[in-house]
């Protein structure tokens, strides 16, 4: 829930976004970008019930794709709907969890290289959190984080409030915040 609220806050922060000016990053492109940002094979990104592909099956239409051959969907949605927002959150969240699980199990993490995922948030240094924020910004948005973004995200690592929680939760919150903001979802 915290990560979700933060994600929405990040949406609001996205500067100068007017609906008519932006292009929706639809299913296949979102899948490719998410796979690249999290260094995961596309086919491992997200499955509902562990079985059904989120991008090519369950959420294809809500994410802006269409399956002309299989389901006779000849045109995709013109604009995102309420379901699109839910689907995006689910696929980003699942993909983040996949990456976190992989990085937590290895001595050579690929994406969450600055956080110590087996420890608590209180045990993370501010430098490490800042480095992780910077790395995720570059992976998702191909740019360094703005000062206000970094400052906002540091609240997620507040040792007074969240210190006892596992660092995996922090990783999830940061990942979801970047993967669900308008700048990543529209271009």
């Amino acid at each position: 829930m915290r990560a979700l609220l933060l994600g929405f806050f990040m949406l609001l922060m996205s500067p100068g976004l007017e609906a008519s000016e932006w292009i929706w990053k639809r299913s296949r492109i979102l899948e490719a970008d998410l796979a690249r940002a999290l260094a995961l094979p596309r086919e491992d990104l997200c499955h509902e019930l562990g079985l059904y592909s989120c991008f090519t099956g369950v959420h294809l239409f809500a994410l802006g794709g269409n399956d002309a051959v299989g389901r006779s969907q000849y045109t995709p949605l013109e604009q995102p709907t309420q379901l699109s927002a839910i689907a995006v959150e689910r696929v980003v969240s699942q993909a983040c969890l996949q990456r976190i699980a992989l990085d937590a199990e290895t001595s050579a993490p690929v994406v969450f290289t600055s956080l110590k995922l087996q420890q608590t948030i209180a045990e993370q240094s501010e430098t490490a959190v800042r480095a992780q924020i910077r790395s995720l910004s570059q992976r998702f948005l191909q740019r360094d984080p703005r000062a206000e973004e970094e400052q906002l995200l540091l609240h997620l690592a507040d040792p007074q409030r969240f210190g006892a929680l596992p660092a995996r939760d922090l990783a999830h919150g940061l990942c979801l915040a970047f993967g669900s903001q308008l700048e990543f979802l529209f271009f």
Partner: peptide, 15 residues
């Protein structure tokens, strides 16, 4: 630059 890569290559340009 960003749109060309996303629309025609299918992914964001790298950093």
């Amino acid at each position: 630059w960003r749109r060309i890569h996303l629309l025609f290559c299918g992914e964001s340009p790298d950093l």
